Amino acid sequence: MKRDSRLSSVLHALLHMAEHDAPMTSEQLSRCLGANPVVVRRTMGFLRRAKIVSSDRGHAGGWRITADLSALTLRDLHVALEKPDVFAIGHRNEVPECLVEQAVNAALDGTLAEAEALLLRRMGEVTLADVAADFARRHAARGHQNKDQRNDA
C-alpha cells in the first residue's frame, strides 16, 4: 500500500528553505528531497494557495516561506495539503447488508475517528519552529560528535 508522504516531504522542504537565505528553486528542493521537480512544484502549489509560501519566476526566483514558523503547525500543513487520509485502514464494504459487517464498520468508524481527532489535536500543537529547533539540536550534536571523533584520532 502506498503511503502519502507529502506532509513529510513538505516539512523537509520547509526546513531546508528556512535554513536557506535566498529563495529555493524547485530543482534545488527536488535534490534535497530526491523527488522530481514537477512533483515539488505541484506539492508546493498547495502551500502557495494556503499562503504558506510564495514563488517568483526568473533568474532570482524560487520558493520562499511567507508564514511565521512559530505559528505554522503540522495540522496547518495537513489542511493545506487538502487533508490526506490519516489512516490507511478502511472498510471491506462501505454499505454492507450483513449485520456483522455493519457492527464492524461502526466499531472501526468510532475508533478511527477518535484516533484521528487525537492525532490532529497533537499536530496542532507542534509548530514548524519546534521541528526546526529539533533539527538545530540534532545538527549541533552531530557537529560535536564529529569534532570529538576528530580529536580522538
Rank of each mutant, 00 (worst) to 15 (best):
M17Y: 04
G124D: 06
D152G: 07
V95A: 14
D109Q: 05
L108R: 04
R6Y: 10
A133C: 10
R75Q: 14
L29Y: 05
V38I: 14
V40C: 10
V39M: 12
G58K: 06
A18G: 10
V86Q: 02
R48G: 10
L72A: 05
L33N: 05
R41I: 01
A153L: 15
P23W: 03
L11M: 12
R41D: 11
H59N: 03
A13W: 15
R150D: 12
G62L: 00
M1L: 11
Q145L: 15
G45P: 00
V10S: 05
A141V: 05
L118Y: 07
M123S: 08
S55Q: 11
R57Y: 08
H78T: 07
L118H: 08
M24N: 01
T127M: 07
D85V: 11
D109E: 08
M24Y: 03
V126H: 07
R137D: 14
E101F: 06
V39C: 08
P23V: 07
R121A: 09
A71Q: 14
G45I: 08
L14P: 08
G110D: 13
S70G: 05
R6N: 12
A103Y: 06
N36R: 07
G90W: 02
A50V: 04
R75V: 02
L118G: 02
R137S: 13
D130K: 06
S5I: 11
R142H: 08
A106C: 04
V86H: 00
